[in-house]
Structure formats: C-alpha cells, structure tokens
Design a protein around this nucleic acid. Structure first.
Length: 862
RNA sequence: GCCGGGAUGGCGGAAUCGGUAGACGCAGCGGAUUCAAAAUCCGCCGCCGCAAGGUGUGAGGGUUCGAGUCCCUCUCCCGGCACCA
C-alpha cells in the first residue's frame, strides 16, 4: 500500500474494476426491489459544468447507497442533443450542428466517466438520433388522430433583416442579437399540443406526489392557474349586425362598476375598429412591435386608445366604450376584459391616466374610498359588500357572483366558467436542429400525416445554418416527397419540434433501451422513476410537459402509470462571483474570477476588485449562476486533473445542502482534498498497526496512547448521518464523516478502530467511491465495498449511564447538569435548583416553576 | 409586474418537534517541524469587555418559561414567466 494518497492511480484502478465487473449494468430482476435513480440529462454544450457535477454526484450518492442497501438500481445517462446552441456554434464555426453535437457528446462522456458515476452506459441515448426521435414523430401522429395535436397561429419574434424567427433569448432590448434590427411580432401557423385538455388532471394529480417538494407543486398549481369566474358578453351592433363581446372575469361582483372594456391589439374588434382610423391602426401596429414575453408585458407602461365602438352593459344597458389596451393578452381568456377601475389596480391606473370614470361598487365597513391613490382594500374580495349596485347592494363576494351569474344566464349572456391560465403547448420551431414534424403538404390533399411505415422522417445531418432561416428550405432532397394520399409531388414540413418534446419521455426510453417500439415490457419494471434530480429552473415547464406526455402515453395504453417521477429533488444552482467593466464600445466586458484581485476592508468584506492585467478597477457584480457569457464558470476538468474526482465530488456534497444554491470556493476544494489525504493516511497507519498487532487493550487501564474510546461517538455520528441521508442532506453526512475521522485520529489504537474505520469507509463510499474502494481492499475488509452491507448503528455501542442537561435560569443558559440516564423528573428538578450555578443566578428567590425537557434541559423560572 | 424560494461569524454552512446558536470546513492569527518553503501537526478564533458579564441568526414588532425555528409588517438577493435548456 502506498503511503501517499494518489487519486489518479486509485481512481483509474477503481474505474477499471467497475468496468470489468460490469458493476452498474442494470438487469431487470423481479426478486429484488428496484430503484430507478435519474438525473436530468445534459445538453451537450461542449464540456461539463459544475451544475452537472453537482447534479450527477447527488444522483450517484443515492444510487450507490441504494445498491449497498440491496436494491436493484438503474442509473442511466443520455443527451438532450437537439437545440439552439448547436446552430449558434454552426453559425460561428461553420461546422454542422450534428458533428459539433456528436463531438461534444464524446468529450463529455469521457468527463462523466472520469468522475466515476455508477451509470449503466449500455442504455445511453441521444435525442438527435433517428431511433429516438422517430417515437416523438410517432406519438405526435397519435396525438393528431386524437385531436390532442392541432394547428393554429402562433406569435413569434421576427427579425426583419435576417428574415428569421428568433428565440426569446436572441432578442436583446427589443432587437435581434445578430442584426440589431427592431424585432416585430409576427403571426405564423404552428402546431399545438392540447395540454389544457389535461389541466384538471395535471392539477389534481399533484396531490398524489408526496415525494415532490411543496414549492414545486405550488409553482405548478399556480402555473396551471385554475380560476372559477364568469364568462359573459357585452352586446353591440356593428355593420348592422348584432355581435357579442365576450369577456371573462373572476370579479363578477364588481360588474356594476364597469366603465369601459379593453381588448388586445390582436382582437378582431380592434382590427375592425382600425379600418378607417389611421391613428388607432398605428397604435395597434405599435402594440404588435413589442415583446412577446410575459415579463415584459407585465412591466411595460400600460397604454391604450379608444376604438370609438360602444358596447352595451349586459345588466344596465349602459353604453360602454371599448379600448385597445397593450396589457390585454390575446392568449388568455377571451382576449378582452371588462374594466372596473375602482376595484382592479391595473384598470385604476389606466383610468387615471386617460381620465376615465371610476365608480366604487364595493365597500369595506370602516374604510374610506378615495380616487387619489390605489388602496390595497379596493381589490379585497373577502371583506367587501356591494354598494351602488342596485339590487345587488349588500351582497358579499360569493352571493353577488352567484346572483349576477344567474341574471346573466337568464339573459343568455353568460354563465359561470372555469378558466385556466395554462395555455396549449406550441411545439413548432422554425429551426433546423430539431426533430422534424412528420407532415407533408400536398397541393390537392392539404396537410397529410406521414404514414407510420415511413417513419422516421430523418433530418439530414450535414446542414450548416447561417442564421437566416431554416437551411432545410434549401434542401430539395429533404423537401421533395410524394403525397401519401394521392401520390403527386408534395413538400415536407420543415418546422421541427420544441426540444422539450425530446425530454418529455426519455426516462421511459431508458427503461426500455433499444426497444423496437416506443417502450417495451421492461418499462413497467423500472417505471416510475424513484428519484428524479435536476435544477430548480425546470420546476415548471420540463416537469409539467413530462407529466402531460406521460398521461397521453397512458391514455394510448403505452404505459400503466399516471406520473413519471415518484420523488423529486430540485438542486440549487452553482454560483460564482461576477466581475465586469463597461467596455469602450458600450458593451460589457466580463472578467473571470482568476483574472481579478479582490480588495477587502479591515473586516474582510469584499469592497471591490482590480484587473490583474491592467491594475484598474473592475465592477463587482455580486454572485450569480455560472455561465459562459459572464465568464464566471469553473471548469470541472481542471479540478479533476488537479485533485481527482473524489475531491470534486466531496466538495460538491459538503459545500451546501442539495436544494440550496452552492457558492464556488477554491479553498473549500483544497479543504476537501486535505480531508481525503487524512483518510488515506489514517488507512495507511491503521494497516501498519494491524500488521504489527499494535492494538491497545483498554480493559487493562494503561491506555495512555488512547485516552478515550471513539466507539460511541462513531455510532452516534452514524445514527445522525443515516437520518440525514434520509433527508438527502449530504453536506452533514460529509461533516459526519469528517467528525468520524477526527474521533478515530484522537483515539488511534482503540480496539474498535477497525470497526469505526469500516463504518467511515462505507458511509463515505457513495460520495467518494474511489478512495473508499481502494482502502476497503487494502485493509482487507472485502473485495468490493459496493457489496458490503450498509452500516447501521449498534444499540450496545450507544448506551451511556449519565447524560448532561442544559441548565437555564429564566431561559438563559447558566451551566449544565449531569444526571443518571432515565432519572426521575423530581430528582432532576431538585438537583437543578440545588446546583451552584442555579443558586448564583436565582439570587435567593424561590423557583416559581421548573421546566424539564427530558434528555435536553432544565429551566428554572424565578 | 406576477408566481416560488432565500437571508445565521471574515466566508460556505450546522442546529431533527420551539430547548446550550455558530457543529464541520474555509480564511485568519500564534506555535511546532524545516537550512528554507511547500506539505503536515498543535492551539486560538461571533461582537463589546481586563474580567464578571453583556450582546448576537437581514430590519421592526408580537406569542412563549424559552424563538434562527411560530405569527404580522418591511428590505434585499436568487429561480421561473411559455422559442435557452
């Protein structure tokens, strides 16, 4: 055994051992309980980043721990291989996205392997391979048949210079990222998946997921956004025709306070009103210029313009003017709203701005209404009653809504309705590097689905996008085809699918890797995923789409489970310091942390930083997620090469609990390395004590080398660590391992030190598998630590005859008290009051009350 | 703007049910070892105070014998907002 810890050598040897014994190959075995542990698969961006290392280490710790606990484990890995960055790289380097992607996959796979993850690589998949995405296409066709997939118009970011559709992230301050041209909203046809048909199920099934974090379920429920309200119409006459303007509201109780209506710029009524009204037409155009992002919509200045069209209030018959408002969303509800400025904050601001009438119709007793400023209570639906509302006066929210809905229904002008915030999922992307949508456009037959036997529609892999439109449009070998219906020449659809489609079912494919159908008989054995691990940034979209896709597959009889992920762990992001400086041209220049010198005040606080290159100050931008653009990423490769995989893994687990953000720290990594060196050194020393038979005999009493036994402490730490593992709080498990080593070092020679070290190695092995594998063999504990039983604390090692209680006087800690284990309450009370420490602080006053918390403390109240 | 989360020493974090705040580690300081350095080992380490003691978990208030933990109000930071993945 080498005296020095040599991570490179032992890591290679351990990995070779796992390779030769096929340790991580998962084979279905009905006799064993299964554990399917899945981490969100990576986008092959080029190299692994710290977020991946964190994510996959968490998964590996769980996988290895469950393997040692006797589960039949599956931990697969694959590649979310379609996506925008490959096209961006192609524009920059003129390399086909396919080649760039496959090269990246090869490199990143090596990196993952060097980290020693217990992955069954035989199940590897890449979503850009036809054998995978053919099933996206196949299921899309099934959805088309069932009416779940359908076509309608979608609003996209249009770059007028490049003549291309841009992703939201490619629009910077309203301009195209490459051209700088102001972006326009444009309506184009696209395919949608009817996720709203499953809204109720997606919402109610959240209650069947106790293994999901509460916050994720709350976010999903809010996203789905079920609200019960009233859908009703304002009648109007236009062009000699009787028409209805439909709106939806959750505040029907305020209907008597309506002073105007507002419609989205895309609303047909707005389009109609703009005919012959150049000013309004210009305003509508302006609205269409803006961003399509909700965050921008919500923060922009609320603007509007009257249409000159009046509608009739359905209950009062009053004439109400219709406005076009840039804050009304065409995609939510009816694309039109009733405006009650007195009781809606947005309408209030709008009415104030344009001098529109504000009519109070809700009153909360004891409060005074004023038009000067918005008050929180104006929007309160719990405590208010109707006023100035004729027959509805005096009714509360519930009563008023019911009465008004009934009256509207009687007039055939409305009814109660459930409304969802959730919108259908637009999956069409006008991009090359994605899964082709399997449709054919025929001049005589229209849009025709590609027959199943012609699947997959294979994407040519040699295109190089140049940033101006989809390169498939220039590929006759892809475009030209024959219509499956009439046999005449036809054209293939060039839109590809949203990459969220790819990631919506990959977990099921892992469970039936290589199947000649979408999934096969192995899926029921492994599914659902027992533990899913991924970034909190996926809390809504990816998880919701996967749940939806699962329900569609279930309804098609492909799978027998309702929910894909039984337990979910959302890991926090990995952060690092951000340094930047305004560049001469006006842009922002970022500095990597190693390129700057930190300035600190006397107290050690960071006050600023200077560039090492020119000595001039740079701006400290605080802490943010590691990203290429901000240049604050740390390359895991350098870390692995300098310290080894175990150090990287240990630091990741030790630095903070999985769900919280993790701040990068170079010195923290060195601390982790130091610890592993000490583990190795202790193992080495222990082996030589074993060989010399130099074990101490504590019973003789002449144990001057070992002043105490660490046995009880080790078992106590193990008990705590096992509890923490159950909570997936790996940082304190790592701490426990460190405390164990501290204890073992202090009691070197203890007769139980082999037992103690074997506990330490097994506890630590899921986190740092290589060093533990090597030491387990070196010290003769066994051939393979993976086959060793998970350690459990022994009751005999935990017993003690005296315990220490905290002694408080008036709630302040004043000392401690040693009592026999299981001492009676009155014995403890008496001992506490009699103690010197208590007497000193009681100042001769009698005890009014004595609180005893068994096993914890005594508090004397005087 | 809306939805969700967070804030504890110089730093990362610990504290299971409301019961010794600061475990464990990093940084720092002092010492040992060394020709020297690295590495390693030992000790100290929230703040104020010579000490006794006081004080302290983003800010302010409340409940309790006792609050980092529960309740109310506020501030700042992070994630998501449907075409980044």
């Amino acid at each position: 055994m080498q005296e020095k810890y040599n991570p490179q050598e032992i890591e290679q040897a351990a990995q070779a051992h796992w390779q030769s014994t096929q340790s991580f190959r998962a084979v279905e075995d009905a006799a064993k309980p299964k554990y399917y542990c899945l981490s969100m698969f990576p986008y092959p961006s080029g190299k692994l980043h710290m977020g991946h290392v964190r994510n996959y280490t968490i998964g590996d710790v769980l996988t290895r721990q469950h393997k040692m606990r006797g589960y039949n484990v599956l931990q697969p890995m694959g590649w979310d291989a379609f996506g925008l960055p490959a096209e961006n790289a192609a524009i920059q380097n003129k390399v086909p996205p396919a080649r760039w992607t496959y090269d990246n996959i090869a490199y990143m796979k090596k990196q993952l392997q060097s980290l020693g993850f217990a992955i069954d690589w035989q199940r590897e998949l890449a979503t850009c391979r036809p054998e995978y995405y053919r099933w996206n296409q196949w299921l899309f066709l099934r959805m088309l048949e069932k009416g779940i997939a359908y076509k309608k118009t979608q609003v996209v970011n249009w770059d007028p210079v490049d003549q291309t559709v841009l992703a939201n992230e490619q629009v910077i301050d309203g301009r195209g990222w490459r051209t700088g041209a102001p972006i326009e909203k444009r309506e184009i046809p696209g395919y949608y998946l009817g996720i709203t048909q499953y809204a109720e199920q997606l919402l109610s099934a959240l209650d069947t997921l106790p293994g999901w974090p509460e916050r994720v379920k709350t976010m999903q429920a809010n996203w789905i956004g079920k609200s019960t309200g009233v859908r009703f119409a304002f009648p109007y006459e236009l062009d000699d025709k009787q028409e209805l303007l439909w709106v939806f509201t959750t505040r029907a109780d305020t209907i008597m306070g309506v002073t105007f209506c507002a419609v989205a710029a895309e609303h047909p009524l707005a389009t109609r009103a703009a005919q012959g009204n150049a000013e309004l037409a210009a305003f509508i155009e302006e609205c269409k210029q803006g961003s399509i992002m909700e965050a921008d919509m919500a923060t922009m200045e609320k603007k509007g313009m009257p249409t000159g069209i009046f509608v009739e209030h359905p209950l009062t018959g009053e004439q109400v003017e219709v406005w076009v408002g840039n804050y009304v969303l065409m995609s939510y509800g009816e694309g039109a709203v009733m405006a009650v400025p007195a009781h809606d904050e947005r309408d209030f601001a709008f009415a104030r701005k344009y001098g529109l009438a504000i009519r109070q119709v809700i009153d909360v007793p004891g409060k005074t209404y004023s038009l000067d400023a918005w008050q929180e209570w104006y929007g309160d639906k719990l405590n208010g009653v109707c006023v100035n509302s004729g027959k509805y006066d005096g009714l509360d929210y519930q009563q008023a809504v019911e009465a008004i809905a009934a009256d509207l229904k009687a007039k055939h002008l409305g009814d109660t309705q459930v409304q969802w915030r959730l919108r259908d999922w637009g999956i069409s992307r006008q991009r090359y590097w994605g899964c082709p949508i399997p449709l054919i456009h025929c001049a005589s037959c229209g849009t025709v689905p590609v027959p199943d036997e012609q699947l997959p529609v294979v994407l040519p892999e040699d295109c190089v996008p140049d940033g101006s439109g989809n390169p498939l449009l220039k590929r006759p070998d892809f475009l030209d085809c024959t219509c499956p219906k009439c046999g005449k020449p036809a054209r293939r659809e060039t839109d590809t699918m949203d990459t969220f489609v790819d990631s919506s079912w990959y977990y099921a494919r892992f469970a039936s890797a290589g199947a000649t159908t979408m999934v096969d008989g192995r899926a029921p054995y492994w599914m659902p995923v027992d533990q899913y691990i991924g970034g909190i940034e996926h809390a809504i979209l990816h998880l919701l789409y996967s749940r939806f896709w699962t329900k569609v597959m279930r309804d098609l009889g492909l799978v027998d489970y309702d929910e894909p992920f039984a337990n979910l762990l959302t890991q926090g992001m990995v952060l690092n310091h951000i340094f930047s400086r305004r560049a001469d041209k006006g842009g922002i220049e970022y500095f990597a942390p190693e390129e700057v010198e930190l300035l600190r005040d006397e107290g050690g606080h960071v006050t600023g930083a200077t560039s090492k290159a020119d000595g001039k100050p740079v701006d400290y931008g605080g802490i943010g997620t590691m990203s290429k653009s901000k240049r604050n990423g740390v390359d895991p490769q350098a870390l692995i090469e300098a310290y080894g995989a175990d150090t990287a893994r240990f630091f990741m687990m030790f630095a903070s609990p999985p769900e919280q953000t993790l701040e990068w720290s170079d010195s923290g990594v060195e601390g982790a390395y130091r610890f592993l060196k000490r583990v190795w050194a202790f193992g080495h020393a222990l082996k030589s004590r074993d060989e010399k038979g130099a074990r101490l005999d504590l019973s003789t009493g002449n144990s001057n080398l070992a002043p105490f036994s660490s046995r009880r402490e080790i078992h106590l730490l193990l008990k705590q660590a096992n509890y923490d593992l159950g909570k997936m709080q790996f940082n304190t498990v790592a701490s426990a391992a460190m405390k164990m080593l501290n204890a073992l070092e202090k009691s070197a020679g203890d007769p139980h030190e082999r037992e103690g070290f074997s506990i330490l190695l097994r506890l630590l092995s899921p986190i740092t598998p290589h060093i533990c594998h090597a030491l387990w063999q070196e010290l003769g504990f066994g051939d393979d630590i993976l086959a060793a039983p998970w350690p459990e604390p022994l009751a005999e090692a935990l017993v003690q005859d005296e315990i220490e209680l905290v002694l408080q006087v008036n709630g302040k800690t004043r000392g401690s008290l040693r009592v026999a284990t299981g001492a009676e309450r009155d014995v403890i009370e008496a001992a506490a009051v009699a103690s010197e420490a208590a007497q000193k602080f009681m100042e001769g006053k009698p005890a009014k009350k004595v609180v005893v918390v068994p096993g914890r403390l005594v508090n004397i109240v005087v």
